[in-house]
């Protein structure tokens, strides 16, 4: 039960930071997503995000910072195994599953759904 509470807390707080950025700086949601990915990637590179993941579990991996974190982990692992070329392949490899899923479901959705009014 404790791990759900931790996931709720960490994930919720990451969203609150995003909300403050939206309301205070008038940043568009697209920019928030970019910031989160970059931030997660950098924190992952510095070895800080790992601690957050250990504590928060899905609360740290479900927000988009977790996606950035996965890119950092992927690229470092790939550099370990493939050396310099790993810089070019590691990030994309780690992102492949998520991006492919998004493309696939977006395609399906576009096939069946039509634009709706608000």
């Amino acid at each position: 039960m404790m791990e759900f509470a931790k996931a709720f807390l960490v994930g919720g707080l990451l969203c609150v930071i995003g909300q403050i950025l939206i309301d205070k700086t008038k940043l568009m949601s697209g920019r928030i997503l970019v910031m989160y990915v970059c931030l997660g990637c950098i924190l992952g590179g510095l070895g800080i995000y790992q601690t957050l993941e250990e504590f928060g579990g899905a609360g740290a991996t479900v927000p988009l910072t977790g996606f950035g974190f996965r890119l950092a982990e992927g690229v470092m692992k790939e550099v370990d195994s493939a050396g310099f070329l790993g810089i070019f392949t590691g990030g994309m490899k780690a992102a492949a599953g998520g991006v492919t899923a998004a493309v696939f479901f977006a395609f399906l959705a576009a096939l069946v759904a039509n634009p709706k009014e608000k």
């Binding site: 008038k26 568009m28 949601s29 634009p115 709706k116 009014e117 608000k118």
Partner: peptide, 20 residues
Amino acid sequence: HFCAAEKQFRFPLPLGTQRP
């Protein structure tokens, strides 16, 4: 037209955003 204007000037309609 609201929908045509949103599509042209802002975001696709199904995007979940808050309006200030």
